[in-house]
Design a protein around this nucleic acid. Structure first.
Length: 336
DNA sequence: AAGCTAGACAACCGCGTTCCG
DNA sequence: TCGGAACGCGGTTGTCTAGCT
C-alpha cells in the first residue's frame, strides 16, 4: 500500500500550533521558502514538506488579510472565475493578501450560493433560465434518452466554452504588446484538455437536478436585477447581499441521469485535444484575459456603449461556437 | 445547559507537472 | 531520454464555533 509522504512515522498532522508557526515563520523569514522537503528538518518541525508549504501559504503572515471579502473582491473573483474557471492560485494573485485557499473557501461557502440564489449557475455563469431554454422542452414528449443527451451536450458545451475561454483565443486577438484587450467574439478554436475532463466529470453532480427544483429557482428576471448594465458590471454594488430565495441544494439527482452518458460523450471531445500549440498560446491569452478582468474591476468604470456584460459575452461566444462546430450539436446517431 | 446544525476555515489527499540526476 | 522526487494545484474532508432549539 502506498502511503502519502505525510503519513510517515514521526510526521505530525493536524492543526498547526503557535509554536510550530513561530518556528516556521522564523525559519521562513531567515531562509525564505526554498526547498520544502528540507524545511521541516531545518526548522525542527515534525511535519512533511508538503504540509509546511501549505501552512506557509496559508499561515497568519503579516501580509495576509483576515477580514471579510469586500464586494469588489467578490466581484473580481466571480469575473475571474467566469473567465478562467477554478484556478484559485491565479485568482488569488489578483487579490493582494488573499491566498488561494481563502478564495477557494469563500467561493465554495459563499459565492456559489449567492449566484445560485440569484438564478445564475455558478459553474457555467449562465442564468438557469438560459440553461433550461437550451435544454429545450424538458417537460415535453421527447424520449428520455434524447433529453439526457441534449442536457449532457449542453453542459458539455458549456464546459468546453468555459474551458476554451481560458485556453484558446484566435491569434489575431492575442496581445502582442501586453496591453489588455477585450474578450474576442470570433469563433474560438476548440481543444480538450485535462481541464475539460475534470469539468465534465467533477461538476456533473452539480448539473443534474430535478425539474421541480429547477422550476423553483429564481429565473433571470430576478437575477437581472443584479445585472448592472449601467456601469457594465455583472453585479451591482450591493447586489450580492440582496438574496432572499431559499438556497439551492448543491447536489441533486435525477433518476434518469447516467454516468454512461457523460463517459460516452467524452469521446466526442477528445479529437480536439492534440494541439499542443494552443497550450503555448493559452498562457499569454490567459494573462491578457485576467488583466482585462482585473483592470475592469479595479476601475469600476465601464463604457456603457460596450454594454456587453460578461455573461452576454460568454453567451455570444457559445453561440458562435455552435455555428462553427455544428457537429457538436448533433445527436449521436446510434451509440449502441 | 445540552444537543444539534450550519457555516467558516484549516488541512489533507490525489494527481499532473516540473525538475534534476 | 528516462525515471524518480519534489512541487503546485484543486477538490475534498475534518474541525471548530456560533447560533438555534
Amino acid at each position: 500500500m502506498v502511503r502519502s509522504p505525510c503519513e510517515k512515522i514521526n510526521v505530525k498532522r493536524g492543526v498547526w500550533t503557535a509554536e510550530e508557526d513561530r518556528n516556521k515563520l522564523a525559519f521562513g523569514s531567515k531562509h525564505g521558502s526554498g526547498n520544502w522537503t528540507s524545511v521541516p528538518k531545518k526548522a525542527r518541525l515534525k511535519r512533511c514538506g508538503k504540509s509546511c508549504r501549505l501552512r506557509w501559504s496559508n499561515c497568519p503572515r503579516p501580509d495576509l488579510k483576515h477580514d471579510n471579502f469586500t464586494t469588489q473582491e467578490e466581484d473580481l473573483i466571480i469575473k475571474l472565475h467566469a473567465a478562467i474557471g477554478s484556478r484559485w492560485s491565479i485568482i488569488a494573485q489578483q487579490l493582494p493578501g488573499r491566498t488561494d485557499n481563502d478564495v477557494k473557501n469563500h467561493w465554495n461557502t459563499k459565492l456559489k450560493k449567492k449566484l445560485s440564489q440569484m438564478g445564475i449557475d455558478p459553474v457555467t455563469h449562465k442564468p438557469f433560465s438560459k440553461l433550461i431554454a437550451d435544454y429545450g422542452n424538458i417537460g415535453g414528449c421527447q424520449k428520455p434518452s434524447t433529453q439526457i443527451g441534449s442536457i449532457n451536450k449542453d453542459f458539455k458545451n458549456a464546459m468546453m466554452l468555459k474551458s476554451e475561454s481560458h485556453q484558446t483565443q484566435p491569434q489575431e486577438f492575442r496581445n502582442t504588446n501586453d496591453q489588455p484587450k477585450l474578450p474576442p467574439t470570433s469563433p474560438p478554436k476548440i481543444e480538450t484538455t485535462r481541464t475539460n475532463f475534470l469539468f465534465n466529470r467533477t461538476h456533473s453532480d452539480n448539473i443534474s437536478m430535478d425539474l421541480a427544483q429547477v422550476q423553483g429557482m429564481p429565473m433571470m428576471s430576478d437575477a437581472s436585477n443584479c445585472l448592472d448594465f449601467e456601469n457594465g458590471s455583472v453585479f451591482g454594488e450591493d447586489c450580492l447581499s440582496k438574496t432572499s430565495s431559499p438556497s439551492i441544494p448543491s447536489t441533486c439527482s435525477t433518476s434518469a441521469f447516467s454516468w454512461n452518458d457523460f463517459l460516452l460523450e467524452d469521446a466526442f471531445t477528445t479529437p480536439f485535444c492534440d494541439n499542443h500549440e494552443h497550450d503555448m498560446l493559452m498562457s499569454k491569452d490567459l494573462v491578457s484575459q485576467i488583466e482585462n478582468v482585473t483592470r475592469q474591476s479595479s476601475d469600476f468604470q465601464f463604457s456603457s456603449s460596450s454594454d456587453i456584460s460578461f455573461i452576454e459575452a460568454m453567451l455570444d461566444q457559445e453561440n458562435e461556437m455552435f455555428l462553427s462546430f455544428p457537429h457538436l450539436m448533433e445527436e449521436p446517431s446510434n451509440l449502441s
